[in-house]
């Protein structure tokens, strides 16, 4: 077997009787930034949720460090080293910033490093230190995204999955967000990034997969995709669909 960190192999995913993903395969290698791009309803979030064991597979398999995740519960996948920042961030809005971060280090294998991880999170996002005792629900959109990423990092993940982190952020914050993602990647975290913001995503991604209505349409290195006329056409379609 190859040494991919994460491998998604020929998966079909259904919501009830409706099929959402058709025979999709892709893989993520260590210390890379891999992007899944496509319009709304292309199946990107569905795939992330399947990796986190929320959506059962009808066909195919998902392997993390060579081990199948098929029989694992979401909380067990999380403790294997996959942190998933879900769409809409899903912070505990009534808990304080600090409490949100602490819960990020809840599993027994990460709890001993709580202090250290907290300091690292505050160093990465100094603003969060100032807001530590504020309820997470009172933060601005940009601060909430910082907290969501910081909370996911508390578990010291091997793979960080980000589901549309730029959604609802002002352009300047989006730029800063992508810089943060790159910096995280340089520090050794592998990143699986789901985005609709395609130009910026392709700039930082080592490799990208393009999804359309539940199937894999194209794949390639970011710069190659951008100059590919086929991609441009599909990409323009994407732009039209998302506006």
């Amino acid at each position: 077997m190859e040494n991919h960190l994460l491998e998604v192999r020929n998966v079909d995913i259904f919501y009830g009787d409706a099929q959402a993903v058709w025979d999709v395969s892709f893989y993520v290698d260590k210390e890379k930034i891999i992007a899944l791009v496509g319009a709304n309803g292309a199946g990107k979030s569905t795939l992330l949720n399947a990796i986190s064991s929320f959506n059962p597979l009808r066909k195919g398999g998902i392997f993390f460090s060579g081990k199948s995740t098929a029989k694992l519960k979401p909380e067990e996948v999380a403790t294997m080293g996959i942190s998933h920042v879900p769409e809409g961030r899903r912070l505990f809005s009534r808990l304080t910033v600090l409490e949100n971060l602490e819960l990020g280090a809840y599993p027994a294998n990460t709890r001993p490093f709580l202090k250290e991880s907290l300091n690292r999170a505050f160093d990465l996002f100094p603003l969060l230190r100032k807001r530590a005792h504020q309820a997470a629900g009172t933060l601005s959109g940009g601060e909430q995204q910082m907290l969501a990423i910081a909370r996911a990092l508390m578990a010291r993940p091997i793979l960080l999955m980000l589901d549309e982190p730029s959604l609802g952020l002002a352009p300047i914050l989006v730029r800063r967000l992508f810089e943060t993602i790159e910096a995280l990647n340089k520090s050794g975290v592998t990143i699986l990034l789901v985005e609709q913001n395609i130009p910026q995503t392709l700039k930082i991604a080592d490799y990208a997969y393009v999804l359309q209505t539940g199937t894999l349409r194209m794949e390639g290195r970011g710069e190659n995709l951008i100059s590919d006329p086929n991609f441009q056409q599909a990409f323009l379609g994407v732009m039209r669909a998302s506006t």
Partner: peptide, 24 residues
Amino acid sequence: TMLGKAVRGVSEDMRAAALLGISP
């Protein structure tokens, strides 16, 4: 306590808690 905070977390969003490795 951590368990107590987890109780509050699960009360608010069970799925988000599971994503953090907290067993609901």
